[in-house]
């Protein structure tokens, strides 16, 4: 065990030395830091909570992007900035019809560093509308992944536009393991996060069908909290503990990939422009 891991475990009061599995520093790929979050939890406190949770990296997207920039300035070693196309949280179902989103994104992509564009919500044929088409082009131009919250049809539509796009499928589309597995098989550049999902593990045991998926695609799955309301910043630590519990039920090499390595690799790919 690395000294850093031991210190982190000690800080959290976890019995890492006595346990069968060492404390794992995770990469959380699904964090939002929106206007009401930063009002209540200022950047230094937010960074403290992320470190307390034992995270190596946190993928952060915010409505507006100001939240991400504040956190990135506070801890560039920890934050992986992702550009959300929302000015405020209420634009979930309207953003893709709003063409003023594009110049906003173009301006920010030119000015700042981003690993991805998202998390954005898009379903079915809406993924073929002009705004989302331009977003896909921008992702290619700036070597960003797309953090897409939507159904399988939307994922397919984006890959039709750009077969070389890289998509991180938020919540794995809330699909079951059979569909997720089919999608991963069809699209080699598709990755999936498990944010706000419980069905893959119950009381620390990984579900059998999900286990098969994890073992078949160990390089494609990541974990995340989804801090969709400001109080949920305080959930990051509990979520990390819950995640470590079920990761222990997987072979160590697979657990490490899902727990942090896949997130590190995606961040490295995206930020190595």
């Amino acid at each position: 065990m690395k000294l850093k891991q031991m210190l982190a475990a000690g800080l959290l009061g976890l019995s890492a030395l006595a346990g069968a599995s060492p404390f794992m520093e995770l990469v959380d790929t699904h964090i939002h830091y929106s206007h009401d979050a930063w009002e209540r939890t200022p950047p230094p406190e937010a960074i403290r909570l992320l470190r307390l949770a034992g995270l190596q990296k946190a993928f952060v997207s915010s409505s507006s992007d100001q939240g991400t920039q504040m956190l990135y300035a506070e801890a560039p070693d920890l934050i992986v900035p992702v550009l959300r196309p929302y000015r405020k949280r209420g634009e979930i179902s309207t953003w893709f019809r709003d063409e003023t989103v594009i110049p906003m994104l173009e301006d920010l992509l030119e000015k700042n560093t981003y690993a991805g564009i998202g998390e954005f919500h898009i379903y079915g044929d809406d993924a073929n509308m002009p705004v989302i088409r331009r977003v896909v082009e921008l992702a290619q131009q700036y070597h960003c992944f797309l953090h897409l919250h939507g159904d399988a049809e939307a994922v397919e539509n984006v890959f039709k536009q750009d077969p070389n796009a890289t998509i991180l499928w938020a919540h794995s589309g809330f699909e079951g393991p059979a569909v997720v597995s089919q999608m991963l098989a069809r699209f080699p550049n598709l990755k999936a996060d498990l944010a706000f999902r419980n069905d893959h593990a119950f009381q620390g045991k990984v579900d059998a069908q999900w286990r098969e998926l994890f073992l078949k695609y160990p390089d494609r799955i990541m974990v995340g909290t989804d801090t969709f309301a400001p109080e949920r910043w305080h959930y990051i630590m509990d979520h990390a503990d819950w995640t470590r519990e079920w990761l222990k039920d997987l072979p160590e090499s697979v657990a490490q990939k899902i727990g942090y390595q896949n997130g590190l690799d995606l961040a490295a790919w995206a930020l190595n422009k």
Binding site: F196, R197, N198, F202, Q203, D226, A229, E231, R232, Y235, D238, H239, W242
Partner: peptide, 9 residues
């Protein structure tokens, strides 16, 4: 009983 993410809050 299941412990679910949505139970938070």
């Amino acid at each position: 009983i299941q412990l679910l993410h949505r139970n938070w809050g």
